[in-house]
């Protein structure tokens, strides 16, 4: 239900971040995106919800042309696509509750929401979302008083508020230690399996890919160099994506 066709992105400074990338994602898949730092993973994810405008190519989602959408239509598409980030991107000085409520902005009244007024049911929904990621008791804390793992869970709760059908995760665990990495990915797995939310997640560690993904694509210098099942991603293929001198390391630091 998500189709990426011939996507190319050239930044104003001439950097070619994506070169003619095409692939499809079916509903309910957990797609891992792998590739070296600088290979274009973030650019790809941001082209899907149009935080970045692609130079050429098309993104079609639910039969809607995302690349052609503008203004209100674009925001309607965005509110159904949740996104979480490596740096969590919470508003650090706002409370956890306010951060979670911002996930509702695409639905909220455009005027009243400017004065931090949200309907009662949004508060209930926010509590439920925080409950789900296990930090309901932190609702009134300031976001910067939370640890990294907790902040990422707030970010997931914020994305949940959007009632998304698709979740984009840009290296969600790269700033976290191994134990927390698993716990965050397990939340994504639950969303994927129980709520049927499609997940596209860029990852760095082969063991995490094997453990959580249902499908993998690999990027190298902006080109699609691998598309297949995690089981097909042998150490040889992995080296193809990451380059010859790469060593395969698990999230907990062991060599494979």
């Amino acid at each position: 239900m998500l189709r990426v066709e011939h996507l190319t992105k050239v930044f104003p400074d001439g950097t070619v971040a994506l070169k003619d990338v095409s692939f499809e994602v079916k509903e309910g898949e957990f797609l891992a995106v792998i590739g070296l730092s600088g290979s274009g993973k973030s650019t790809l994810l941001r082209c899907i919800n149009r935080l970045i405008d692609p130079t050429e190519g098309k993104v079609v989602w639910d039969d809607k042309d995302v690349t052609a959408a503008q203004g209100k239509e674009l925001r309607r598409i965005r509110r159904q696509i949740g996104m979480i980030f490596q740096q969590f991107n919470l508003v650090k000085r706002s409370t956890v509750m306010t951060n979670v409520l911002t996930g509702r902005l695409g639905y909220a009244h455009p005027v009243t929401s400017l004065f931090h007024i949200f309907p009662e049911e949004d508060y209930k929904r926010a509590h439920a979302a925080l409950e789900r990621v296990g930090i309901a008791e932190k609702a009134d804390n300031r976001a910067d008083q939370l640890s990294g793992g907790q902040q990422q869970r707030v970010a997931i709760a914020r994305a949940l508020m959007q009632e998304p059908k698709l979740m984009l995760a840009d290296e969600p665990v790269a700033s976290l230690d191994p134990v927390l990495a698993h716990s965050i990915l397990r939340y994504l797995e639950t969303l994927n399996q129980e709520d049927g939310i499609t997940v596209i997640c860029s990852l760095h560690f082969l063991d995490l890919v094997h453990r959580y993904a249902t499908r993998v694509i690999g990027l190298k210098d902006g080109e699609l160099v691998f598309d297949g099942l995690p089981t097909e991603l042998t150490p040889e293929k992995f080296k193809e994506v990451y380059g010859e001198e790469a060593e395969i390391v698990t999230v907990s630091g062991e060599k494979l």
Partner: peptide
């Protein structure tokens, strides 16, 4: 970062 995150919610 936060600016991007909030745009991504459809705000």
């Amino acid at each position: 970062g936060p600016v991007e995150a909030i745009i991504a919610t459809g705000a």
